[in-house]
């Protein structure tokens, strides 16, 4: 019972906080689950918040995570192929007049990068490895 009371109190606090933030003219922190752009990305999905990204949110994310888009890169033909595959095998309906703008968005902001036959090692996080076997993080 005590934990339930804490939970209800917590809910109350959350509601008050959210309302306080959303009525503030210059909120210091964004309210949760409301569309917002942070570092050029849509805060709810991670999609690049340019062009027709709202069409992508509306048409693609009912079935799968935005991460399936943001981790992929393809040409216009490549994205169109994926859409057709989803229509043929996964139950995606015809996108109608939205198909063109959606494919344009994907091909513009998630275009392939030429990495050749073997990309260089990237995102290496350097750390000190001592002979004794200990490890510690280091900026280099």
């Amino acid at each position: 019972m005590r934990s339930l009371r804490h939970f209800l109190l917590l809910l109350f606090l959350v509601v008050v906080l959210v309302q306080a933030c959303s009525t503030d003219e210059a909120p210091s922190a964004p309210p949760p689950r409301r569309e917002n752009i942070v570092d050029g990305l849509d805060s709810l999905t991670g999609l690049i918040a340019q062009g027709d990204y709202r069409l992508v949110k509306g048409n693609c994310l009912a079935c799968h995570s935005a991460k399936l888009i943001t981790q992929n890169r393809a040409t216009r033909e490549g994205w169109l192929d994926m859409i057709h595959w989803m229509q043929e095998t996964q139950g995606l309906p015809d996108l109608g007049k939205n198909e063109g703008p959606i494919v344009d968005y994907l091909a513009t902001y998630y275009a392939p990068e030429e990495t050749g036959r073997r990309p260089p090692l990237d995102s290496v996080e350097w750390y000190i490895l001592s002979a004794a076997g200990g490890q510690s993080s280091a900026e280099r």
Binding site: L121, W126, Y127, I128, L129, A131, Q135, A138
Partner: peptide, 10 residues
């Protein structure tokens, strides 16, 4: 080791 190791004393 994990990638990114810096060996300073060996």
């Amino acid at each position: 080791p994990k990638t990114g190791a810096i060996l300073s004393d060996t």
